[in-house]
Amino acid sequence: VPVGPALVYRELDCDDPETEQAALVAVDYINNHVLRGYKHTLNQIDKVKVWPRRPMGEVFELEIDTLETTCHVLDPTPLANCTVRPQMQHAVEGDCDFRLLKQDGQFTVLFAKCDSSPDSAEDVRKVCPQCPLLAPLNDTRVVHAVDAALTAFNAQSNGSYFRLVEVSRAQLTPLPPSTYVEFAVAATDCVAAEVTDPAKCNLLAEKQYGFCKATLTEKVGGEDVAVTCTVFQTQPLIPQPQPDGTEAVGPTVVADPGVTVPEASPDLPAAALVVGPVVV
């Protein structure tokens, strides 16, 4: 590389419309690639540097803060209609580094890295002294509440048997002793009323996801469970490009390339924002 003048980055205001445009592309990228949990929305742009890129274009180096919304990533509700989770529900923030290429007026994500963390207990206590904090997803009471709620939901269902996809958040309340959980489910090829061995049920090729909120309340001599699930419209199969250039549609093909749904992972922290592979 011939020695030339040092690259100089362009100073841009963090609230400049061009910076905001880049940040919104970054947030869109997060929500299309996040593997679990909730959609995030832009809260603040921390830093921006715009580097010239040879032979053409510019690279935006961006640091942004996001906040968790109440929309699950599998929920098709547009981000603009999603509510930011209030502090009293124990908010979660995302801290992201992005590099985006701007060429011909279009942004492309080159690099993305996000970490998420829940608000501190002190902050939650300041706004709501009695509000429950986020609980570990592998807490036995959480696991039991999800199991009881899903069993109750399937028992009332006259359609497909739904299987757990992930536990998304949980809170424990001491008085009365109760466990609040939110979890994602997916329809299987079994009929709920006829299931004898859930292990033999398979997820539908045309994925149908749902999102449930449940409260399990402990009582003397038993427990009460209240569960509400929203089942989203089916996600049609999208032809996937094959190595030989053909396109295939079949049950082995991932239906939604943007969102990969892993098996429930109780060892993940309560507020993991996992961003998938980056586009380079």
Binding site: E11, L12, D13, C14, D15, T19, E20, T41, L42, N43, Q44, I45, D46, K47, V48, D65, L67, V84, Q87, A91, E93, D119, S120, D123
Partner: peptide, 27 residues
């Protein structure tokens, strides 16, 4: 700023290029 004593200097807007505005709340 160094100015002549008899020249009035208009107070310009305070520039805070970064970080940008907080849209919801800071945690």
């Amino acid at each position: 700023k160094v100015v002549q004593p008899d020249v009035a200097v208009a107070a310009g807007p305070v520039v805070h290029p970064c970080p940008g505005r907080i849209r919801h709340f800071k945690i």
